[in-house]
Write a protein that binds this DNA or RNA. Sequence first.
DNA 1: ACCTGAACACCGTTCAAGT
DNA 2: ACCTGAACACCGTTCAAGT
Lengths: 206, 206
Amino acid sequence: MKQPTRPTLTREYIAATALELVDTIGREKFSMRKLGAELGFDPMAVYRYFADQEALFDGIAETLFRELDTETLPWQGSWRVLAEQYAHRLRDTLLAHPHAVTIFATRPVRSAAAIDTGTRMIELMTAAGFAPAVALRIMRCLREFIIGHALSLTVVQLGERRSRKPAPESETYTVLAEAADSTSVDDHFELGLAAMLDSFARLGSE
Amino acid sequence: MKQPTRPTLTREYIAATALELVDTIGREKFSMRKLGAELGFDPMAVYRYFADQEALFDGIAETLFRELDTETLPWQGSWRVLAEQYAHRLRDTLLAHPHAVTIFATRPVRSAAAIDTGTRMIELMTAAGFAPAVALRIMRCLREFIIGHALSLTVVQLGERRSRKPAPESETYTVLAEAADSTSVDDHFELGLAAMLDSFARLGSE
DNA sequence: ACCTGAACACCGTTCAAGT
DNA sequence: ACCTGAACACCGTTCAAGT
């Protein structure tokens, strides 16, 4: 049993390391060469496991999806509790990796796990009285809202370059700024999620 | 009146040309050097008007926002009609520039026009009986859903690399694929928009 | 057969040298 | 003072040369 001095490279390990690197230095500073160095292999080693950077980013998206741990979602509960938990899990996972949100948001995750999770959700909602096509549409709406939300939050959070908001004494202080001050930057997520779920509930069996 | 042989460079003209170039060759093929060439000036001319590529992309986002033409929205109608039209305008504008959606989605638009439009919307909704903070939250929800939607659509549309969906005869043909076949790729937008607006209506004066 | 890194064809951005 | 493009410090990716 000859042990290599460094961990054996696998697609999963490379993708996980790439995600860590993106978390650390940001997406725009990330490079294939730095990943090679981080792995301790020659800069081109990654190309033996991924066709190109796009394929590697697909791997990062799959890693994020795995982090959702969909297995532990409340599959025994109602469709609404499941949808709520799924929404919160997805949002929390994305917000835990602010630099990687754009990577996740710009590609569909087509791993077996992701397809399986989607299938189970449609099945559960169908059993709850939704037409399959309606269930799919509902899931798409939720996913798009969550991704749009996570993207907006992280983009603002990471781009704290020069906050242009005028001080309260300024005469240009508007209704917009006033409203913004009285609302935290993300507490509308629950509002939007509940709004969608409340309305979707009426499309089901009841 | 000495006319230059080429159009005078302005920030707006450069940003509009950059958007055209992104539309044509895609965001990942776009470069500052190609933009310089496209403008007919030396490759570095753009740097006299924009600090760097990020600032130029901010300009592209502002150009897209201008294309919304918020002035012609139904400001005299109900908040709901206004919100609906705004949502459709924003979606249509983004879908008209599939290669530029990621640019718009990854930065806040802070132009005077954008801030003014936001302010007017909050004011109109406040007059309709919403608390300003609630109105702001509602607008954020809508914006995030629309952006998430446009991003999902264009990403799938542009990335038609290898569609992995199995044929109907295949035994792996799942409920998911079946539901996907019976639904077009974007008809859930109206469902999600109406779902949000229906619920939000209950937060107002009525 | 597998691994390596030199090399190619690009980038964004700076800045010295021109006018 | 303004304009230009050479030059710097990188990229992603290929592929000839090694083992």
